[in-house]
């Protein structure tokens, strides 16, 4: 079901003013849209066939938020949500993929090998491992986990993250380095 554009704006406002319920509602609205766009992006005739999450979330933003309501604050919040959702979408499917493989469904069409999506993340298994690691990180440093999510899945820049989370850019940079190191260690265990 297509969300009404005004609805998304309203929810964003609610979210900004601290209403937590808005988050859940926004997620479900945006999720559907992101999935749609994710798919349609793949049909682009781009030689490299790669997909930037930010472009995707940007597009979702444009489609979901009314022209007159678009301001950078809304956008920043939206991107923040988008990042989280991108992560969810990808990880969900990675997990599903794993389940299928384990279930041994017939695959009659073999696909080419995966292209490298990112150094260190070569397969659905890697993505799941990252997600697990992030969940663990979240348990004792929520902010770091969020920063990784925003940066890696959302493609937000440090200034944008700084603004969204309300911490200095320096703190963001520091947390990011630490998180990266920690996650790497965790994943290569």
């Amino acid at each position: 079901m297509e969300p009404h554009t005004g609805e998304v704006t309203r929810l964003l406002c609610d979210l900004r003013s601290g209403k937590k319920e808005a988050e859940a509602q926004l997620f479900s609205l945006v999720y559907g849209e992101l999935r749609r766009i994710a798919g349609s992006y793949l049909r682009r005739e781009r030689p490299d066939h790669t997909l930037q999450p930010t472009a995707l979330v940007n597009e979702a933003y444009l489609r979901l938020v009314e022209q007159t309501e678009q301001n950078w604050e809304n956008r920043a919040h939206f991107l923040g949500i988008g990042a989280h959702l991108m992560r969810q979408i990808l990880v969900d499917h990675a997990r599903k993929r794993q389940a299928d493989k384990r279930g041994g469904k017939k695959q009659l069409v073999t696909l080419d090998g995966l292209e490298v999506a990112a150094p260190g993340i070569q397969s659905p298994e890697d993505l799941i491992a990252l997600d697990n690691a992030l969940l663990k990180l979240e348990s004792f440093d929520h902010r770091q986990s969020r920063i990784v999510e925003l940066r890696f899945f959302g493609g937000l820049r440090e200034e944008e993250i700084s603004h969204l989370l309300g911490v200095s850019v320096r703190t963001i940079k520091r947390d990011w380095s630490v998180a990266r190191a920690w996650l790497h260690a965790e994943m290569t265990k």
């Binding site: 994710a38 793949l42 066939h49 790669t50 997909l51 930037q52 999450p53 930010t54 991108m86 990808l90 499917h93 990675a94 599903k96 993929r97 696909l111 080419d112 090998g113 995966l114 292209e115 490298v116 999506a117 990112a118 150094p119 260190g120 993340i121 659905p124 990784v148 940066r151 890696f152 899945f153 959302g154 493609g155 990266r180 996650l183 790497h184």
Partner: peptide
């Protein structure tokens, strides 16, 4: 590791 934001190859998503 994780330096660049995730950009996934179409094929990757094809597994979806």
């Amino acid at each position: 590791f994780l330096r660049q934001p995730l950009s996934f190859a179409a094929n990757f998503l094809d597994d979806l």
